[in-house]
Design a protein around this nucleic acid. Structure first.
Length: 606
DNA sequence: GAACAACGCACC
DNA sequence: AAACGGTGCGTTGTTC
């Protein structure tokens, strides 16, 4: 059987596991391999020890390392990084095979589907996923379990206890679907590619970049980011106490138990702050809105209590306590970077979402959240951040020479726009955002707090002074409407079957274009390339920012990383630039790299 | 209990 | 004619 598998150029591989937390103790108990014609079920489940398909767990690495370590093999998976993590737990460390993730292929095939689960995609090739979960729940193979940090319990299906006559066909079915789906998607993508305009870059290079990105992300996730557990615990306690005090204050003032819901707030504010009621705005669904910018204008001090409570409660819950629940026993957090998570090609992050960690004014708070994330003892935390990458890409695409000349000379992008228009920088920045996001005059008027008439004439002024950007945006929308498909600079494709959404096309093109710049940067600067064999590593990606741990003896890597990221985009008119920040303390304490270095030299000269 | 809608809010 | 893009996550309240 092994020689059969080792002779295959392409295999689908799937695992079955005790749970969804590879870094917090869950283990695989079976491996399913599918070839073009067959499926193989490998059972490592001690629960089925007596069954003839049972194998000792220690054989996993011996059997599967040669397959996953073979650079000439292609492995198809669904949610590849998860299986890689589970395999890594069994001692498989080399992933030299090309790993193709169906979710990512499916995004390239059609970026606007509602779901990308194996279940949802199986329909594309006429397969249906077996409903083992439902069967387990209905037949007593479950137990009550509560999520970490949660009180309420829910029924948890016990896959590892499932009878073999159920789980083997189920697992093999998934393996079959994974293989066939990958073949089908690759075929469809190649057919399209063959019919593309000769000047369009091939989708094959996008697929190849994504495959490399999968490995880099796996490496980042496996390594994880170090959590300052003492700080996090202290911060959580502080914010929880603050929230508690505010709830008491609310109760004392109103006699009502605080609940942050429209029901509670509307009752309370109508009674205690009738003057503010006049200012009430409505939500999209026509209900009373209690958004921060609404209640910030309230006269009633109760509104301030609510605002404060929201802040404390969110910091304690969404950030600090969540980190404590997700940290492993080595003090590391392993965020999940979802490679097929967005319509544009960006990454998304979850468990925790490290891409929405508060920034900016958060630095002045008692416990800034970014301080939770620290470098290891002998390393620095280095952040490389592309400067206004979306605007710059748009200017380069548009070849808007006058603005570009200013920017190349060192003028900030928004200031350069402001100079062209003869308006202030803030207005120019808002307009740039509008353009990038496809906003209309109404939104512009709202953002700048000016009458609609003025917003319209401001737009006209922009169109007049930056004609190249304007015509670029119009051309992209027109192309999306007529061709129903557009390609970014790297060859990533976006479909617009419905004309009504063509206004999103410029945003997809720019946002997704930047995403590919960053993916190239990640791979080139990553743990398989520049950082291979070093004591430094890449740890996080936040859209236009990459975060590294750079060992103290390897600081010469910093300018190299910076250069790689800046050079990732082959510009025509306007090069990209990246800012570098560094800290020996935390993500919340970074300072400009050059200034830091100058300070270091000054100190050592003493 | 589970699933969903609605809301609000953090980021780029 | 009119449209601000892309995310993840926590809580509340409703419904089955």
């Amino acid at each position: 059987m092994l020689s059969v598998l080792r002779s295959q150029a392409a295999l689908a591989l799937d695992t079955e596991t005790t749970g969804l937390r590879p870094w917090q103790g869950d283990r695989l108990f079976s491996i399913i391999v599918a070839t073009a014609h067959d499926e193989f079920y490998f059972n490592f489940n001690a629960h089925h020890r007596e069954h003839e398909s049972f194998l000792e767990r220690r054989y996993i690495a011996e059997w599967f390392s040669p397959i996953l370590g073979d650079p000439n093999k292609t492995i198809y998976k669904h949610n590849a990084k998860f299986d890689m993590a589970m395999l890594h737990n069994e001692g498989i460390t080399e992933f030299n095979a090309t790993i193709i993730d169906n979710e990512i292929l499916a995004r390239l095939y059609d970026n606007a589907r509602f779901k990308y689960s194996l279940d949802a995609l199986a329909g594309l090739i006429g397969h249906t996923k077996g409903g083992l979960k439902e069967w387990l729940l209905a037949n007593g193979y479950w137990e009550w379990r509560s999520e970490p940090g949660e009180e309420k319990r829910s029924k948890h299906p016990l896959f590892y206890k499932a009878p073999l006559e159920r789980i083997v066909p189920y697992g093999c079915g998934d393996g079959r679907t994974t293989f066939d789906l990958a073949v089908w998607l690759l075929q469809k993508l190649k057919e399209r590619d063959d019919n593309r305009h000769p000047q369009q870059p091939s989708i094959l290079q996008v697929i190849s970049l994504e495959a490399k990105t999968t490995k880099e992300l796996f490496h980042m996730e496996r390594h994880g980011v170090l959590l300052d557990r003492e700080y996090t615990a202290e911060a959580r306690a502080y914010e929880e106490a603050r929230a508690q005090d505010l709830r008491c204050e609310f109760k004392a003032a109103t006699g009502v138990d605080f609940v942050d819901s429209a029901k509670c707030l509307s009752a309370v504010f109508k009674q205690f702050a009738p003057d503010d009621v006049a200012r009430f705005r409505k939500t999209e669904k026509g209900n009373l809105s209690f958004k921060d910018d609404v209640i910030a204008t309230f006269q009633s001090p109760l509104a301030q209590v609510v605002r404060e409570h929201r802040d404390a409660y969110k910091r304690a819950g969404t950030y600090f306590s969540n980190y404590e629940l997700l940290v492993d026993d080595r003090g590391r957090i392993h965020p999940n970077f979802r490679q097929g998570g967005t319509k544009t090609g960006r990454l998304s992050a979850s468990d925790p979402n490290v891409q929405n960690v508060t920034k900016g004014k958060d630095k002045e708070s008692r416990f800034p959240i970014r301080r939770c994330f620290i470098p290891p003892p002998d390393s620095f935390l280095v952040s490389v951040d592309l400067d206004q990458v979306e605007y710059r890409l748009m200017l380069d695409y548009a070849a808007e020479k006058d603005v570009i000349r200013q920017v190349v000379d060192g003028v900030d992008v928004h200031q350069a726009t402001a100079n062209m228009m003869g308006v202030d920088r803030a207005s120019a920045k808002t307009i740039n955002f509008m353009l990038l996001y496809g906003g209309g005059p109404l939104k512009l008027a709202h953002e700048l707090k000016i009458p609609l008439r003025e917003a319209k004439s401001l737009r006209e002024l922009y169109f007049d002074r930056l004609p190249k950007v304007t015509s670029l945006i119009k051309a992209i929308i027109r192309k999306a409407e007529t061709d129903k498909v557009i390609y970014n600079w790297f060859g990533r494709v976006y479909r617009f079957p419905d004309k009504r959404f063509a206004y999103k096309a410029p945003n997809y093109l720019i946002q997704g274009g930047c995403a590919d710049v960053m993916k190239i940067g990640m791979v080139e600067a990553g743990n398989d390339k520049l950082l291979k064999g070093t004591r430094s590593t890449q740890v996080l990606s936040v859209h236009d920012e990459l975060v590294f741990y750079v060992h103290k003896d390897e600081l010469d890597l910093v300018p190299k990383i910076q250069q790689i990221v800046e050079k990732a985009y082959p510009y025509k008119h306007l090069p990209l630039t990246a800012g570098v920040e560094i800290s020996s303390i935390s993500w919340g304490d970074t300072e400009d790299f050059d200034a830091w270095k100058a300070g270091l030299n000054a100190t050592s000269a003493l």
